[in-house]
Measured scan of single mutants.
Amino acid sequence: LGLPKMEVFQEYYGLPPPPGAIGPFLRLNPGDIVELTKAEAEQNWWEGRNTSTNEIGWFPCNRVKPY
């Protein structure tokens, strides 16, 4: 089972920042694999864990694709 995984195809370094105070941003590099921890199809921002860095944070969902 486990959490859904997504592959990063466009880098994200915190700009634009996540809206409001939902949480810290998650740095993404192309090729990184992100395990989704909070993701809803109608939301533009998802939370996940970058398996390369083990960091957890928020990122724009348009930077990832199904793994």
Rank of each mutant, 00 (worst) to 15 (best):
L36F: 04
E35Q: 10
P4Y: 15
R27V: 08
A39R: 13
P60R: 02
T51C: 12
G2V: 12
K65A: 06
P16N: 01
P30V: 15
W45Q: 00
G48T: 03
L3C: 07
P16W: 00
P66W: 04
L15F: 14
R63V: 13
K65P: 04
R49A: 08
V64N: 02
G57Y: 03
P66E: 15
L15E: 05
T51I: 15
P4V: 15
C61D: 06
V8S: 05
G23H: 06
G14F: 03
E55M: 14
T53A: 04
A21F: 06
F59G: 01
W58A: 04
P19L: 04
W58S: 04
G31P: 01
E42R: 11
F9K: 14
Y13I: 09
V34H: 05
G20F: 06
L1D: 04
V8C: 13
P4A: 15
P19C: 04
E11C: 08
G2C: 13
F9A: 07
W46D: 00
R27W: 06
G20T: 09
W46M: 10
E55Y: 05
M6C: 04
R63D: 00
F59C: 01
S52Y: 09
K65V: 08
E55S: 09
E35P: 00
P18R: 00
A21H: 13
Y12V: 01
A39M: 15
G2D: 15
N50Q: 04
C61M: 07
P17Q: 09
E55R: 12
P24D: 09
I33F: 12
G48R: 01
P30E: 15
R63T: 15
C61L: 06
W58P: 03
C61N: 12
V34T: 00
K65N: 06
V64L: 11
S52L: 09
P24M: 06
N62H: 14
Q10V: 09
F59T: 03
F25E: 06
R49P: 00
K5Y: 09
M6I: 07
C61K: 15
L26N: 00
G31S: 05
P4F: 14
G48M: 03
W58E: 00
Y67L: 14
L28I: 15
Q43E: 15
L36V: 14
F59V: 03
G2M: 15
K5C: 10
V34F: 03
P24K: 15
I33K: 08
E7S: 06
P66C: 13
K5R: 12
G57P: 02
V8H: 01
N54I: 01
N62T: 11
E40Y: 05
D32S: 03
R27P: 09
G48P: 01
K38Y: 11
G23M: 08
M6W: 07
P60K: 00
G20Y: 04
P18Q: 01
A21C: 12
Q10T: 11
I22W: 13
G48S: 01
G2N: 15
D32C: 03
M6P: 02
E55D: 09
P66L: 10
R49C: 10
P4N: 15
E42S: 11
I56N: 06
P30N: 07
A41F: 15
E35Y: 10
Q10C: 05
E35V: 12
P16L: 00
P24F: 09
R27G: 06
I33W: 07
E35K: 06
Y67G: 07
N54F: 05
G23D: 07
T51M: 12
L1W: 09
W58G: 01
K38L: 10
K38R: 14
G57N: 01
G48D: 00
W46A: 09
P24T: 07
E55C: 09
M6F: 09
G23L: 05
L36Y: 00
K65D: 06
P24L: 05
A41L: 13
T51F: 06
P60M: 03
G14C: 00
F25V: 13
L1Y: 05
K38T: 13
S52W: 05
N44K: 12
W46Q: 06
T37V: 10
R49W: 06
V8L: 00
E47D: 00
N54D: 14
C61R: 12
C61H: 15
E47V: 07
R63M: 11
D32Q: 06
I22E: 09
G57F: 01
Y12E: 01
K5H: 10
D32Y: 00
I22C: 15
P16C: 03
V64M: 05
W58D: 03
E55F: 05
I56L: 08
K5W: 05
L3Q: 05
W45V: 00
W45Y: 13
G20E: 13
L36G: 03
K38G: 14
G14K: 00
S52C: 09
T51H: 11
A39E: 14
